[in-house]
Every structure is written in C-alpha cells, then in structure tokens.
Design a protein around this nucleic acid. Sequence first.
DNA 1: CTTCCACGGGAACACTGGGGTG
DNA 2: CACCCCAGTGTTCCCGTGGAAG
Length: 416
Amino acid sequence: MTGTESFQVGIFENLMSSQQIFENREVLRHTYTPDYLPHRSEQINSLATVLVSALRGDTPSNVLIYGKTGTGKTAVAKYVGKELEKSGDLRGVQCKVIYINCEVIDTQYRLLAHIARHFDKDVPMTGWPTDQVYSEFRDSLDREKRVAIVVLDEIDKLVRKGDDALYNLSRVNTDLKKARLSLIGISNDLKFTEFLDPRVKSSLGEEELVFPPYDANQIRDILMQRAEMAFKKSVLEEMVIPLCAAFAAQEHGDARRALDLLRVSGEIAERAKASVVGERHVRQAQEKIEIDRVVEVVRTLPTQSKLVLLSVLLLNNGADTESLTTGEAYHVYRQMCREIGAEVLTQRRITDLISELDMLGILNAVVVSKGRYGRTKEISMSVPLESTKSALFEDYRLKPLVDFRAPQTAMQMKLY
DNA sequence: CTTCCACGGGAACACTGGGGTG
DNA sequence: CACCCCAGTGTTCCCGTGGAAG
C-alpha cells in the first residue's frame, strides 16, 4: 500500500512542478506591448518629435519607418501612438491614432472603409463604388476638428494592389476643412518606395526613420526584461537567455523570434515536467518552431498549391536529382489532377504558384538558363520532407494520392 | 549566331458577393 | 423581385525575352 501512496504523491508533485515555470506567459507574446522598450529610446524620441505638433493642432509630417521584422517598429509606433492619445486627452486636443495592418486590409476599398468605421460610419464590406466610400470616409473624418494619425503597418503590401489608396490618403488634407490626417508607414522593405508614384513618394517620406536590427546583446536585454515578468524566479538556466539571443541574432536580429523561442522553450520544459528550462529545451524549441511554421503554412494552402507542392515533393523523393524543373513538376501535377478529378491549371499559373511557395520559404526556386535546353526554374524543397508530406495528406482531397508514385525517368514522363 | 524552353509581364475574362434602384 | 453596378480575385491567353549550349 505504501507504494501506491507514494505514487499518489508523485502525481501531485508532477503537477506542482509543471506549474512552476511560468508566472505570466502572455508577456512573451509579440502582441504584448511593454511599457518600456529597451534600446529604442532614440527612435521613440524621433517619432514623438514629429508627432508632437499634433498636440499643438498642426498636422504632423508623414513618417516612413523602415526596419527588418522584429526590430520593434510596430511596438514603437503603437507605444508612441498610445502616449500621444493620452496627452491629447489631457490637453483636450482630439488625437486619434488608427493602427492598420495592410497585410489584412490590403485594398483601397477596405482601407477607406476601415478608417471610416473608426469614426462611426457604417460602410458595408463590399458593394459600393470606391469614390462613394472615399467621400463617406472624408465626411466622417471632417465632422470634428481633430488630428487623425493612420499607422499603415506592412505598407509595402498595399503598394502592389492599391497605390491609388496611398495617393488619395496623402492628399486628403486638401479636401478637409476641420480635421487633419497624417500617415505613418511601416515597411520592412527598404526599396519599396521605388514602385511608388513619385507624388506619393515625396509626401509620404517627409520624415524617415530607420530601425537597425538588434544585436545579440540587445536581444538579451529585451529577453531579460520580459523573462523577469514571464517566468517564476530562477527557473531559467543561465545559458538559456544568451542562447535564445544568439539564435535570434543569427536571424537578422529578430526580437520576435527570440521571444517565441523563449516562450516555446518554457512550454517544452513545462510539458517535460522539468523544474528548470535548460539548453536542450531551447534547441528543441528551435526545431519545433520551424516545423510548426511549415505545417501551419502547408495546411492552409489552397488545394492547387498543395498539389503543386506534392508533385515537387514526390519528384524530390525519387531522389535521382536534387532539383527539378517546372516542366517535370507540371507533368506530375497534371497526372495527379486527373487522378483525383481536380481541375487542371495552365503551366503559366503553375509558375506563379511555385513562385508563391518560394516566397513562403517552402521551396527554393532559382531561374537558370540551360543554354540549348532553354530556361527553367530549378526547384528543390527547403523544409523537412516528412512533416510536409503528412501535413499535405491531412487534406482529404489529397488522400487518394497517398500511394501515387512519380515516374522516375523522362521516358515514363513522356507517356504521361 | 541560332536555338530552345519556360519565365514573367500584361490584358482580358469569368465569377463572386455585395449594394442600390425601379 | 429582377436587374445592373462595383471591387476584388483567380485564371487564361498572348507574347516578348534571357542566356548558355550547340
């Protein structure tokens, strides 16, 4: 009987120790904006200096913020915006900061509608002509005397589809009687203004701010600050934070990565019922994050892209060559479509899908000229094969292809 | 210099999901 | 209700082009 009893105690001990890692893990999520941003006081000051004129009732210059992912652009913009609204309230000046992520809201229509809705105008999701949305937006903004600041995060995503949106926004002030509008653009592409209408370019880039990547030491400081709040006392081995920082510094100083890494390390340690987070947990976390990312991306791919990816995968698994060409992939793709009764897209479209997969970092596609034998993309997988494969076969529409074999030689391929 | 193949830009088109109007 | 208008998205069609092997 004593044996069972000690087993019982063991259960509770385990449960207790698994509670012992986190104090508040929300602090490690990148949606969390801390009250203090280490190593960014310079940028905060510059941005505040530009925006302060809003408190005097003037129109602040438009600002463009550049910097790679995870360099604190969004955090700084949100932080300064919050502070500005606060001071505005104190002084009785109407300052409104609207944060928009252009990856989600990526067309002129949606952008204008979104802003209009912030000022309590009802604009339907779709259906109206754009000029009508524009005047709704303008009227709602101009109803009162105020300064509105629109933060356009990932503004480069907007340039492709809706650069007239930027044009209209940047000259809306000439149509306004009481209110004023200024823009803050956030981009991680330094060269995105090249594709911009020159008029927009000059008005948007009145002020420019560059966020350099963090180095390993700075990332360490950031992690320290957050870890303080996130973890219980002394559950982190000494190595953990420097290691996370080092990994993230390799990825061009991405603080977001570092925070994810730290959080996932903690979660892994917790699940393993360890009492402290150690180096091996960090290494496991590193691997897990990459696989999770790939699986998530693959899972949410449209069916056609999944088919394309699968054909590349199978050809690569055949493994007589490391890389393959678009033509080969297309043949296999066509066969598979026929097999499962899916619509067959043109090769033109498939090149686009392959490029998209390349952008997502799932494939590697390089254009090479093979002289006499023309020009093609050399494609190879750049993620773990097995996890990708199982993620693909989660889709019931691809299930019938589990036993599908790619033809190994060019001869067989010709016989389709 | 020619030749070859797919790349990739651009126009055109079809379709969707919504709104307003008579 | 039927009908047309609109933005947005995904696709096809057409075609000029790059660049090393032959």
